[in-house]
Amino acid sequence: MRCGDFRESYAEDMSLFESPLPRVLLSGLLLFLLVLPQFATTYWLDVLNRICIAIIGAVGLNVVTGYTGLISLGTAAFLAVGGFATAAMAGKAGLPFVIVIPLSGLLTAMVGLVFGIPSLRLKGLYLAVATLAAHYIVEFTATHWDSMTGGVNGISIPPAQFAGLVLSDDRKMFYLIFPVTVGLLFFTKNLFRTKVGKAFVAIRDQDISAEVMGVNVFRYKLLSFAVSSFIVGVAGSLLAYQARIISPENFPITLAIDYLGMVIIGGLGSILGSIFGAIFITLLPEMLRLGTDALSNQWPALMQLVAPLKAGVFGLVVILFLIFEPDGMAARWNHIKAYWKLYPFSY
C-alpha cells in the first residue's frame, strides 16, 4: 500500500491508476464478472443486466448533471428514444445490433441536442423544468405515433442478432451488455481527462469564469447534452433488446427521478458514484422484495402488510444516505480507501 502522493510527472498525474495494484484488482473484478453468468440463475442474470443498463444510463446522466451541472429530468425520455429507435431499426428494418445500438445512440444524441438548446438561457431548476417538458413531448409522441412506436400497446423487439449470432436469452445478452458497459465507462472516464471534459467541469463550477477562460459555453453545454444523450440512448437500446417489449409505460417520469436518485446517492460528478448508485437503486427494491417475499411466503397473511414497507424502507434509506453521506457513496468509498491506505496510522 502506498501512503502518500508520489506523482512526479504530468503523465503520472493524468494516469487512471495510481499504482499497479488497482489495475490488477480491476482486471480480477472484470474477469470475475465475465464468468459470473455461468453460475447465475435467469433471475439474477436479469438483475445483473438491468444493473449494467442502469450504470450506463446513470453515467450518461452524470455527464450532463454531475459534470456539467445541468439538471436533466429527460433521462426517461432519452431512454425511450433509444428504445423505440431500436424497435424500429431491429424490428421493422431487421438490422443487426452492431449497427442498431450506435445508431440509436446517435439518434438520441440528436434529440438531446434539440432539447439541450434551452440550456443556453436556462440554468438550475428552470432547466430542469425545460427538460421535464422534453419528457412529456417524447412521451406524447411515443403514445400517439402508433405506426412507429405501437402506441399505448407497445412494440415487440426481436432478439439481438448479428451475422447468425442470436442473443436469445439473458446469459447471451450479458455478454453484449457487459462489454458495452465497460467500454462506455472507459470512454467516460477518459473523457474527463480531455479538453472537452475539463470544459464541462469548468462550466459546472462557474460558467462565467469558464467563458472568460475561452470555453464556448453554449457549444460545450450542447456537446454535453449530446454526449449524455448518446450514452443514455445506448442504455435505452440495450433496455429494449433486453425487455423485448416496450411501451410508453416503460418510461414514466418516475424512471427519470430514479436515475437522478442514482447519481445523487452515488455521487455527482463521479463515474464510480454512478456505478454505486446504479447498483444500489436497482438492487434495493429486489433485496427488499426478496426479504418481504421470504416473510410473506412463510406467513401469507402478512403480504398485505409487508409489501408497503418496501416503499417506506426505500425512502428511509435514501433520506439516511442524504443525511449521513451527502457527497454520495463514492465519497464514502474514498474515505474507506483513505483509511486503509494509511492503516494502521490513520491519524
Binding site: V47, P285, R289, S296, A307, K310
Partner: peptide, 19 residues
C-alpha cells in the same frame, strides 16, 4: 401461492416473472 408486489413497475414485473 408465491405472491409478490411489483408496484406497477414493468421492469419489476418482468424480473418477478423470470424469477
Amino acid at each position: 401461492l408465491l405472491g409478490a408486489d411489483y408496484a406497477y413497475k414493468i421492469d419489476q414485473a418482468r424480473a418477478l416473472y423470470k424469477k
